[in-house]
Design a binder for these strands. Sequence first.
RNA 1: GGCGGCAUAGCCAAGUGGUAAGGCAGGAGUCUGCAAAACUCUUAUCCCCCAGUUCGAAUCUGGGUGCCGCCUCCA
Length: 518
Amino acid sequence: MSLFNSLTGRQEPFEPVDGAKVRMYVCGPTVYDEPHLGHARCYITWDVLYRLLKYLGYEVTYARNVTDVDDKIIARAEKEGVTPATITDQYYDHFIQAMRALNVLDPDSEPRATEYIQQMLEGIQVLIEKGAAYTTPDGSVYFRVHTKADYGKLSRKPLDDLKAGARVEVDSGKEDPMDFALWKGVSGDVINPSDMKWASDMKWASPWGWGRPGWHMECSAMNMAMFGPQIDIHAGGADLVFPHHENEIAQSEAWTGVTPFARYWLHNGFVNVSGEKMSKSLGNFATIGQVLARYDANTIRYFLLTHHYRMPVDFHDQALEGAQNRVVKLHRALKSAVQKLGLEEQTLFSSLVWPYAQKYGDDAWQVDFTAFNTAMMDDLNTPQALACLNRVIDGLNSTEFDAYPSPEEGLKRTLAVALALFHILGFSIAPLFQAEEALLPKDSLLDLYHAFHTEKAPENTPARDLLTSLIELRQLAKTTKNWSLADDIRNRLSAEAGIQLMDRKDGSTTWEKLPDHV
RNA sequence: GGCGGCAUAGCCAAGUGGUAAGGCAGGAGUCUGCAAAACUCUUAUCCCCCAGUUCGAAUCUGGGUGCCGCCUCCA
């Protein structure tokens, strides 16, 4: 397993400090707004890494924090006239719903910044004692950047260059423009608690007066509390490299004296929307909910995984539809095999996938499994991993299983490998077991029923029965070689109800609900 | 201005010294009453341009052009 380490700028073999134990920390969301595609990309990427590490046998402890104290939260609360906790509860809830909808595994822990104030204060105290931080008259504490000789090592920004371009802040009380806040004093604020009741929620008592933590401090404190002075993997979006991660490194290493704070720094690339960078300031961010309304979770994941995680990704419909077309085929092949074998969702992995997937080393699909592993261990080369999945799926569709003791055995082994890859990449098997009846458009089917039948449909006829009746009518038309009627029924079902009819060799007709194009 | 990244077929995208993965779309065939699905075959003499290194480069070096990002909130 090797990973591209932002700290060294190279791809390196992955070796955890403590044998098979992996301490992995990912910067979580600031919960003040709807989760967007940037979050989807980030957390799907690290979800895949988490799944892969576990699959490879590592004992992973995955922490993903929740930033629930921040100026943006306060601003939002003020704007809406509610407490900050109302905002953070609401958007945390939305975030978790989005993650579940995207089939992102829950991390092992989700520490909240507000639960670690004490640890932050302890860390800040140590930094002051070591001379790496200083207080200002307004009750703030700043990190003294020049005391950290290797400051800038992650983002490769020499301190002098940064200073040259630093924005001048007025009345900050900082010794140096590059110094950053560990603690933001609010004692000097003119806050009338009776007017702004929420203000008390975002203030904590500290040795330097009332205040709240600076942005970066929470990650250092939570890592220290959960993992100690050094972790294996620290990941997040590329936009966090500077200043967030740079400052986190500075304060953590100055605090503990242990270097490096995180041994592997991993960063995922940006998300663009129709060619433009998605950002808060541009106001063009697409929420996860908006995209999920148009494409299913597996499509979004497939689309993201066709790109290497460090490359930028551009969300636009032509590309998304390409992914959707492929995912529909994937689902169709897997669903068909699952049905042929009469498998059940709950026992799919315990009864088939894990017992079979790696058992038969001489199977053709094992070659693809090995290639898959190689690709994934090469800095998560998911595009190549998907190529392996595609080959296995093609194999699933071809009914030739001559090399196996029986066709059923061949189908089982092939499906097991396909589903293993499917699972490691984090795709959901839910669509393979989805009852399609629930997706039938009742109104359209009723209209079509009346278009082709002279009798009115009885009250409350289930959509499924309406469809069955239309299929039977078409079967009759076919037996009398009334092709125009048969074709008419088929064409209108497709055009008006999104239902594709398929005639099988044995004379029966099956159907499939086409994806909705919103 | 400083730093970094990217440029591969109609579209998306791997590969990074040995002669272009995969997907979508398109074309042909098998199957079908016709379709759909599925399968098979097919679609870049070439990887932004120029020069160089090399037996050999899309892959390395130098120069150029274009696009993007970070240096400010953002995943």
